[in-house]
């Protein structure tokens, strides 16, 4: 589990949890509730370069599609195939088994531009 209290959040509802220069990323519990039953997740391929704030994955529910914006820049080094096979994992555990992929950060300082849990909570409620 990536304790949400220790994650950094983007305004667009993605979280990042850094260990060294690798960040695990996913969508917030608030976001999974808003999207409701997720039916499909399309992830970038390992090796892909992603850029902070740019769309790099897609989340679909029955009647909606949402872009996933990379919370930090870097190279995708691992993807969570489990959520591709079973997208309900994102609803069940947005900060656990429902993680999206891991990024080898090219600009770790970008983390500082993201919000902490308390700040995110106060914005996400609105």
């Amino acid at each position: 589990m990536y304790d949400e209290k220790n994650c950094r959040f983007a305004k667009s509802h993605e979280w990042a949890f850094a260990e060294g220069d690798v960040a695990t990323v996913g969508i917030s519990d608030y976001a999974q509730k808003e999207i409701s039953d997720i039916v499909f997740v399309e992830l970038p391929k390992a090796g892909a370069q992603v850029e902070q704030g740019k769309p790099c994955a897609v989340i679909e529910s029955v009647k909606a599609a949402a872009d996933f914006f990379a919370p930090v820049s870097g190279e995708v080094v691992a993807v969570n195939d489990a959520i591709v096979d079973n997208p309900a994992l994102v609803n069940q555990s947005a900060h656990g088994e429902g993680w999206f992929f891991k990024i080898k950060m090219s600009k770790p300082a970008e983390l500082e531009a993201l919000m902490d849990f308390a700040a995110y909570q106060s914005t996400a409620a609105h």
Binding site: D37, V39, F40, E60, V62, K63, P87, A88
Partner: peptide, 8 residues
């Protein structure tokens, strides 16, 4: 009808 099951 269960649209969720159909899409998953």
């Amino acid at each position: 009808l269960d649209e969720l099951a159909a899409a998953r």
